[in-house]
Design a protein around this nucleic acid. Structure first.
Lengths: 255, 255
DNA sequence: CGAAAAGTTGACGTATGTCAAATATCGTGG
DNA sequence: CCACGATATTTGACATACGTCAACTTTTCG
């Protein structure tokens, strides 16, 4: 709806506040490297090398451990009893996996590796114990959970308010940001996801995802590199943000 | 996409696992009442009576406290810098508010009351301190965060895979479940949200929300009661689930 | 090298957004 | 308590973004 006349606007705080809050949604004070170091120092971890399609945990399995991605690229799949299924989150170095299982004692998603990587696992019971001794550890844990929630909220907003093309653009933009924060290459990005997975994650069909990417390439916002169409170059991240903005402004900000 | 031929299916775990995981997504062992009791026992809380449209916290504000809904009905609004805005979550008795602020130290949503209610607030610093002394408290806290994440994941799946009518039906169904769990009336439900808010939450326009409700009423799945169209009766919750199912099965389970 | 999988693209249909008008409801001041 | 303006809701007609289906091309992998 056009917000300037909407009931939803009534209590809207200044956009300034949002801009501030959204500028950088990173756990304050702690870099990813520092976080990993802290975990290593205070917790007995078990390391595991994983390959694409390896399962970290599965829905229904008892949640005794939490996992931390030390490297690699992971997806979370959520499924309904009736067969509907979706990629609901992506995770990178420094992200925790398994939070979804703490409440019920069973994971409710599948966590799956999309690339070679290393996963650390920590017994939740041990983690709790150490948290009582090391407050910094508890803060870190809470920050990680909080960050995930905040991200999900932003993602949900994008899902619901951006047209398909802009959703893909925003997806790529946030991917660049995520990689930058981890000091990984961003000049040439290898999408580790199929079009079907991108579409699933972004709430559209694989065809729509494919068309959106083609359109972004046609408009020079991205470029395909190498063989296959999974290597993407992003000459200018701002061009991506601008593309998203253009999708938002011209039409009223409906829905 | 039709999952039976999709690449997404490859590593799909048994639907059984999902069904189990989704059956009841409640923090294990602890009822809402018990949770509130535990909080009261171990934490210095400040109580506040709120009315519809009262602000619990705002995006950008420093996150020093967490809040717990003791009664009432709350919405979380998320907004982007460009003006896009959405109701991203609803909260009831026993739910915690403010987790989104822990990571950055600033809330990134607005939490707003939609009805008269009571909110408890707890200094986060105090909470952390007590958590180190009372493990049950820490477990409770983690369970609350975990539950919220798990809920959000299910919600996201519904947003992305259900048609508008089914989304509204599912919304009402989950509302009934939430009220039941809190021993609140479910024979006659007063929606405390405008059509615009329902639409915003469910990723559709207010007109679509209105039409969906009209359609559900026409098909006898719900009934409007009292004056206004904000009072809804749900003679049979199963009829709602069935309605959702009908929307999923006939067409292939695309997207 | 050949078959299978992934990706692209076009034509077409439809769910849902958009715009607008009519009606119902609510809140306020007399 | 009533009347009236403001707000919320409903409903219709129409437009369109995106899903659907299908053919074709490219890439991958054994």
């Amino acid at each position: 709806m056009n917000l300037s006349t909407s009931a939803l606007e009534e209590r809207r705080p200044s956009l300034q506040a949002y801009a501030t809050a959204q500028r950088e949604r990173t756990p304050y004070a702690l870099s990813i490297a520092a976080m990993l170091r802290l975990v290593q120092e205070h917790l007995p971890i078990q390391r595991r090398i994983v390959h694409a399609d390896d399962v970290i945990y599965q829905a229904g399995q008892r949640c005794t451990h939490l996992y931390i991605a030390n490297s690699g690229f992971f997806k979370l799949m959520n499924g309904a009893a009736d067969g509907r299924e979706q990629v609901v989150a992506l995770h990178f170095k420094g992200d925790w996996l398994g939070f979804d299982g703490l409440a019920t004692g069973q994971y409710c998603c599948d966590a799956i590796a999309m690339d070679i990587g290393e996963v650390w696992s920590v017994r939740y019971a041990t983690l709790v114990e150490r948290c009582t001794e090391v407050p910094a550890l508890m803060n870190l844990l809470h920050a990680a959970m909080s960050q995930e929630m905040a991200r999900d909220r932003d993602f949900q907003l994008n899902l619901c308010t951006l047209p398909a093309d802009a959703r893909v653009a925003e997806f790529l933009r946030s991917l660049v940001v995520a990689l930058e924060r981890r000091d990984l290459r961003t000049d040439r990005i290898t999408l580790r996801m199929s079009r079907a997975e991108i579409g699933s994650y972004l709430g559209m069909t694989l065809e729509s995802a494919s068309r959106a990417l083609s359109r972004l390439a046609r408009e020079q916002v991205i470029r395909f590199a190498g063989s296959g169409r999974r290597e993407v170059q992003i000459p200018d991240v701002k061009a991506l943000s601008d593309f998203v903005q253009r999708s938002v402004s011209p039409s009223s900000e409906r829905h």
